[in-house]
């Protein structure tokens, strides 16, 4: 029983981060109808920014060798700053890789390629500036908090896991409230529903798309920083596997569905946690096999609307 619960806790905490990250894909998809393949690279940026804002020193291989910020921020502020910086990167990606195509009404296939190009540039810039080595966030970031909290009945949770869960949960809550209660959130939903009608009603859809990119990239940067809390940053290609898993979450939940992305993240996180340790090498395959099965049975994902074919 306890083992079972423990796995559930592990799964939910990583699932919360998957969900957070996939929400970024979802936001962009809902307003533009395309997938931003640079999202994983922005996630990587978030992890590196977090490292820098926490006062980390750049290794010896990059152009910025042995540099560091003159100030060291506390963890909470560093995470927010990393998210904001990632949001700026996301806006830049939108301006360079999406806007020119959007203006022309280009076919969706082209967005895949341009956003991938943007991702390649970001990843290689990181490599150029920071080198290819792995980075670990300083071990004292949690301050006086214990590394592991006992929850009784032999159940325990790493403080980092709890942090992942809390930050992920609160961010998603805020996002939901914003989307459904605020004027700008509703405007974003209007653009997602029908961009032309929204424009006729006086909504600046270009600005809404930029807003979607900024928020999506903030979420990517934040989840990058959160993941870096629990595992080392393995190098500039850190974000690729998360980028793929995020795609899985996106499709599992249904393209463009916010509750779908949240549930999808939890499902994939929990599924992975329940893969027995002996088969842990197959963990990534299990998540994708699950995704594949869902697609075959329910092609529009768990929460997606079935497409209507119009003649």
């Amino acid at each position: 029983m306890e083992v079972w619960l423990q796995l559930l806790v592990n799964g939910i905490s990583i699932g919360a981060v998957y969900a957070l990250f996939a929400l970024g894909y979802t936001l962009v998809f809902s307003v533009l109808g395309v997938i931003n393949f640079a999202h994983g690279a922005v996630f990587t940026c978030g992890a590196y920014f977090t490292y820098i804002f926490l006062g980390g020193v750049v290794g010896s291989n990059g152009l910025l060798a042995a540099q560091k910020l003159p100030v060291t921020f506390p963890l909470a502020i560093a995470l927010v700053l990393a998210g904001l910086t990632a949001a700026m990167v996301g806006l830049l990606v939108e301006t360079v890789a999406f806007k020119p195509l959007r203006r022309r009404g280009a076919e969706p296939l082209l967005y895949l390629i341009t956003s991938l190009g943007a991702g390649v540039i970001i990843v290689n810039l990181i490599q150029l500036l920071m080198g290819a080595e792995a980075y670990a966030l300083p071990s004292n970031i949690l301050g006086s908090m214990p590394a592991v909290l006992a929850l009784g009945h032999g159940l325990q949770i790493r403080t980092v896991q709890l942090l992942l869960l809390l930050v992920g949960g609160v961010t998603m809550l805020i996002l939901n409230i914003w989307l459904n209660q605020s004027l700008s959130g509703k405007a974003l939903q209007a653009v997602a529903e029908d961009a032309t009608t929204a424009r006729l009603l006086g909504i600046n859809s270009g600005a809404m798309i930029q807003l979607a990119f900024a928020i999506a990239s903030f979420l990517a940067g934040l989840s990058g920083g959160l993941v870096a809390l629990s595992v080392n940053i393995g190098g500039p290609y850190f974000g690729i596997s998360y980028g793929l898993k995020g795609l899985g979450v996106l499709v599992l939940g249904g393209l463009g569905s916010v509750p779908g992305a949240m549930l999808g993240g939890l499902i994939i996180g929990i599924t992975e946690a329940f893969v027995p340790a002996k088969l842990s090498a197959y963990k990534d395959a299990v998540a994708f096999a699950f995704l594949f099965l869902v697609l075959i049975i329910r092609p529009q994902g768990l929460f997606g609307k079935p497409p209507i074919e119009k003649v």
């Binding site: 360079v96 890789a97 020119p100 195509l101 280009a106 082209l110 390629i113 341009t114 991938l116 190009g117 943007a118 991702g119 390649v120 540039i121 290689n124």
Partner: peptide, 10 residues
């Protein structure tokens, strides 16, 4: 290379 992939479709 990334720039070429990015700018090509544009």
């Amino acid at each position: 290379f990334g720039l070429v992939i990015l700018l090509g479709p544009i």
